[in-house]
Design a protein around this nucleic acid. Structure first.
Length: 583
DNA sequence: GGGCCCGCAGGG
DNA sequence: CCCTGCGGGCCC
């Protein structure tokens, strides 16, 4: 890996290289920052010599870099805060740029008088490579700099599944397919931890992918078209800011997000800019609302397709992970198209600094209480005056002791069987949980789960056969009692609930196995069985020959449904052929 | 750059 | 099963 000094030197060399175009410069910088660059022998030599010189000269060399314009704002002459880079290669703080050159009629660089292109003047984008350099510079050593991650080659994978001939010709499936690299269920909340990542790093803020499909494979956001990942009764795990809704407003640390729906998608359309009816808090919008009230962590991914945000990535880093946010408020209001839209105020709460931040630390609490005026103004106009707030005890919260964000309550349990770090621990846990649920139905006499369950008015469960055995031919005796009209009272005393001793004689007259309960029990039993199998597979994991009778995957399989492998959870498994892709 | 079409995942 | 979905390739 490059020393920090070397890194900065290289960035400057790139910036000064007259043979490179702006785009090439940007791309070279990005490659450097993302760790794609590989040390050649020559480079290693210079690095060595460099280290020696550095050792001799102490830190002088590093501090001398402060004289270089590269990291400084050409307006305020300080280190850039949220740097934007003009086509002339001069850098500015986003704010400095917005208050000075952007407001003037002649939009030109105050440093070199070079006129900005219309695109840059209208929507300057943060130069994230520069923020990394500034952070590194401030920290003075490589350790504190956000560590460049090494992307493992995602191409040429045996399981980069092609589904259609057309897609094969294009060199890539045109819909979601391919192996999910991270070991987490789709309904995993919060950051993707190192344990779940085959590289052992976890998904870091600033990591980026070439498209939504790639992003999906690394678990940051699973749906490949939809912008919201979630379940209406659990919450939302992640969102993408992709410019699909014109009401969105992005200010980096906070943004206003629009819910989904309200659009006519008839005729096999996937999206439609035109809204034709009101949005409601249902399905994905409801999931987001739940994440809001619970204060759950929501992963946020930004796409270069968002054209109106300075915080959106560029084509060089098309789909970028920006860390954890919480939804502090949500409400409904009239959107620009005149229909009601669901609105969500996201506020960042991540331990890592944002890609656009020149700070060395992540977010600090407080932002969620001092709401931006854009949001408060909109909330005042909220539909029916209803504004939903985040809980006082959010699931994801600031830990004063650790001085870090983290889980303040247990994370929601995954409902999926996708395996993975949490899923694996969950399998055994799930067995015991469901067994516990089953025990709720246990017969008060034989203590087993009843096959013909009866629930008494006093709320206790028994097997029908156990009750009959206990009270001896219930139906017959009662019939006999009714026929004689004599000893019913006596029998009543003789038929107390075996659990609570309450008289259940009258109930027993008409008692029948509860069909509804039978169904519930059957479902639970099936779930326990499934969970047991999972736990078993888990226990046997690592052993050879686990795939048993599963046939080898055949290239060109056009299965429409894929799931992580039942055996090793690494997937995908073709459910039509039940073929397994495990190595 | 716009329109069109497509496969697929996932919720309900 | 049906419907939705802030993709992406391709053709024009």
């Amino acid at each position: 890996m490059l020393s920090q000094h070397e890194l900065l030197k290289r960035i400057m060399e790139i910036n000064k290289d007259p043979s490179l175009s702006d785009a090439e410069k940007a791309s070279a910088r990005q490659d450097l920052m993302s760790g794609k660059w590989k040390a050649s022998e020559e480079d290693k030599e210079t690095a060595k010599a460099d280290d020696k010189a550095k050792a001799a000269a102490g830190e002088e060399k590093d501090s001398s870099l402060l004289d270089d314009d590269t990291l400084k704002c050409a307006i305020c002459f300080d280190l850039c805060v949220r740097p934007v880079t003009a086509p002339c290669q001069h850098n500015f703080c986003l704010k400095c740029f917005q208050v000075r050159p952007a407001r003037r009629s002649k939009k030109a660089c105050p440093s070199c008088r070079h006129e900005f292109g219309a695109k840059f003047a209208a929507n300057p984008r943060i130069n994230t490579a520069l923020t990394v350099a500034i952070r590194a510079f401030k920290a003075g050593d490589a350790r504190a700099a956000s560590k460049p991650f090494v992307r493992i080659n995602n191409d040429d994978r045996p399981d980069e599944a092609f589904t259609t001939e057309r897609a094969q010709r294009a060199g890539r499936a045109n819909a979601a397919s391919g192996r999910i690299m991270v070991n987490i269920p789709n309904d995993h909340f919060g950051p993707i931890p190192p344990e779940a990542d085959p590289r052992g790093t976890g998904i870091k803020v600033g990591e980026y992918w070439k498209d939504r499909l790639d992003c999906r494979q690394w678990g940051a956001h699973f749906p490949h078209v939809a912008g919201i990942a979630g379940q209406s009764n659990v919450g939302a795990q992640s969102v993408v800011l992709s410019g699909g809704y014109e009401d969105d407003r992005d200010e980096g640390e906070w943004f206003l997000y629009t819910g989904s729906g309200g659009r006519d998608l008839s005729g096999n359309k996937r999206t439609n800019k035109e809204q034709s009816f009101d949005q409601v808090f249902e399905s994905m919008n409801k999931a987001l609302k739940l994440s809001c009230t619970k204060g759950l962590p929501v992963r946020v991914v930004r796409s270069y397709k968002e054209k109106r945000s300075s915080y959106a990535p560029t084509e060089e880093t098309p789909v970028r992970y920006d860390g954890i946010y919480r939804i502090v408020k949500c409400w409904r209001t009239k959107g620009k198209q005149g229909y009601l839209v669901c609105r969500y105020l996201f506020v960042r709460c991540d331990n890592e600094p944002a890609s656009w931040s020149s700070d060395e630390t992540g977010d600090r609490p407080g932002l969620e209480t001092s709401l931006p005026k854009e949001a408060t103004e909109e909330m005042r106009k909220a539909d029916k005056g209803q504004v939903v707030s985040m809980s006082d005890k959010p699931w994801w919260d600031w830990d004063e002791e650790k001085q870090a964000w983290g889980w303040a309550r247990d994370p929601p349990i995954s409902q999926k069987t996708a395996g993975g770090a949490s899923g694996k621990q969950g399998a055994r846990k799930k067995v015991s949980e469901q067994e516990k649920a089953l025990r709720e139905f246990a017969c008060g006499i034989c203590k087993n789960v009843p096959t013909e369950p009866v629930s008494t008015p006093c709320g206790h469960n028994f097997c029908m056969p156990c009750l009959e055995k206990k009270f001896g031919g219930i139906a017959d005796e009662i019939d006999a009692g009714a026929a004689t009209g004599r000893s019913l009272r006596v029998r009543k005393v003789l038929k107390p609930c075996p659990t609570c001793k309450v008289d259940i004689c009258d109930f027993l007259k008409t008692a029948q196995a509860n069909r509804e309960m039978t169904a519930v029990i059957a479902k639970l039993q099936a779930a326990v069985e499934r969970a047991r199998l999972e736990a078993k597979a888990e226990a046997e994991e690592g052993e050879e020959g686990e795939h048993g009778s599963v046939p080898a995957w055949q290239p060109g399989c056009t299965a429409s449904r894929r799931r992580p492998c039942f055996c090793c959870s690494r997937g995908p498994v073709c459910l039509r052929e039940h073929a397994c892709l495990c190595p």
